[in-house]
Design a protein around this nucleic acid. Structure first.
Lengths: 153, 153
DNA sequence: TATTGTTATACTCTATAACTATA
DNA sequence: TATAGTTATAGAGTATAACAATA
């Protein structure tokens, strides 16, 4: 039999999963409206914060295969967000670089992120945001430990 | 300039997104280990909780196209989790039904969910789980309101 | 006429493996 | 020999549109 505490934990997990799904859908829709997908936006985000990067570095940063990055960059080039520039010292490599439009879009994403943070977390009862952050930090740590245990390599 | 509060809100959003990603990856891996994908597991979950369903009902419940359900059911049939049974009163429709293996698997998923809830949320400092649930509930509500505003249809 | 599910087609994300050009 | 990126191939999830069978 499930105790009240066990039921509360399951409710908490459900809530977290639901929120997860809602946020993903929300972001995917906003991105689609400006011609981006989540995966392509993730790549754009890297370029905004780290400047032009080789596809290899991007593949490692996004933790996907090199082949996948080729596809993502193909899409972003076709839609005008980035260009492939020659690497100045390694003729095998390309530097994926934001176009003016790509930079504007990435800046807009950063702004939208700040606005969403405000809309979700502003004006919470005193101390509640602290409590949530503390709680989620603990939970994230526990999840990380579970994953380490599950993959003992 | 960002105030300390604005920075804290962004940190909270980052934390939530990170947790989201970690949980998704964690679940996808666990599912892959038993021959399921997230989308197929979602369908299985419906069958566990609601019993045999037509594909139309499943499409509405999962909020995807009917075509997509055809594909998901095809995959689940091939891998032995479900069968297509004739609908007793509507010869156009099929009732997607769990096999014995599918039911065992779905039961295992429910158990795993309970265990994950325990591992993530058990033994938190007094009141912290309450605070997290309260905070996340508020945030989920705000997100829902944002989505309604964004899609005034 | 309307609905259920399929076939046809297409796009995106993802992967591995073989290959080319360069280091 | 090793690395960067592409071509080839494949599977999964998603969509719309046209169609067959049935309601």
């Amino acid at each position: 039999m499930a105790t009240a505490q066990q039921r509360q934990r399951i409710a908490a997990l459900d809530l977290l999963l639901e929120l997860t799904v809602s946020m993903s859908e929300d972001m995917a829709e906003s991105l689609a409206a400006i011609g981006l997908t989540p995966a392509r936006a993730h790549l754009l985000w890297q370029l905004l914060h780290r400047g032009p990067q080789t596809q290899r570095v991007l593949a490692d940063a996004l933790r996907v295969s090199g082949r996948n990055v080729t596809g993502l960059v193909d899409g972003l080039v076709q839609t005008g967000f980035v260009t492939r520039e020659p690497h100045p010292r390694d003729r095998r490599a390309t530097l994926v670089t934001l176009t003016a439009h790509g930079r504007r879009t990435a800046d807009d994403l950063a702004t939208a992120q700040r606005e969403l943070a405000d809309q979700l977390f502003a004006r919470l009862p005193a101390g509640q945001l602290d409590a949530v952050v503390e709680g989620l930090t603990t939970v994230a740590g526990r999840l990380r430990r579970l994953q380490v245990e599950a993959a003992p390599r």
